[in-house]
Amino acid sequence: MAETTILVEDVSMVFSTRDGDVHALDKVSFGAREGEFFSILGPSGCGKSTLLRIIGGLLRPTDGRVAVNGSRVTGPTPDVGIVFQSPVLMNWRTVLENVMLQAEVRGLNLKEYRQRAMGLLEMVGLAGFEDKYPYQLSGGMQQRASICRALVHDPPLLLMDEPFGALDALTRERMNLELLRIWEASRKTVLFITHSIPEAVFLSDRVAIMSPRPGHLDEIASTRLPRPRTMATMEEDTFVKTVGTIRRSLKQEGSID
């Protein structure tokens, strides 16, 4: 039995605004195992991004406990890489410099990690682009650079907040395959947030389904699809059935009309 990397217990989040309190999360609990690809699936506004930020230690929950790698999260989680929906690359840095930001801020050996950064850029198909500025790259390339940035310090945990949500459908499929390739090679624990049912099923070992207002976790479904997965996986019966089951349960919860 693999160790639990992420442990979330009864996490609630209330934002107080001028118009009154907003309950973003209500007693959410789950655990993700080491090396697992774990997705959180739900419609917009169900608090899944809030949950990711709480796990990353960027937000403090109103109630409940979060532990990563066995230690309780009280500030930004030390060994984590984050990918947001937008690439959030710095305009004033080249692609390589953007990736190296991680190493600079963490005070790592720059020479050594430069090598690693170059290797990662090559792996995601950005070899030769390391000295380009972000504006010279397409959206998909920018997002790949930001994935390199999240991986360069070799964190055991990768948090991804709808990383491909802003990409077109074709690029998105290609990025999904690439992400799986990277993941199979490194076997990091991945917490992946998405509102696309096929994407969640295609990528994950397990999918947690969330409903909004207040955000709560309804059920966790195992995908039971063999790995490595390819485009052909999406045509398999198990895949289609799992997608159907999840869609029905979201519908039941009133998350899809």
Partner: peptide
Amino acid sequence: VENDMVDMVRSMSA
């Protein structure tokens, strides 16, 4: 600065 940018740098234990 975008909030995501600040969060991203924070996530690096900055």
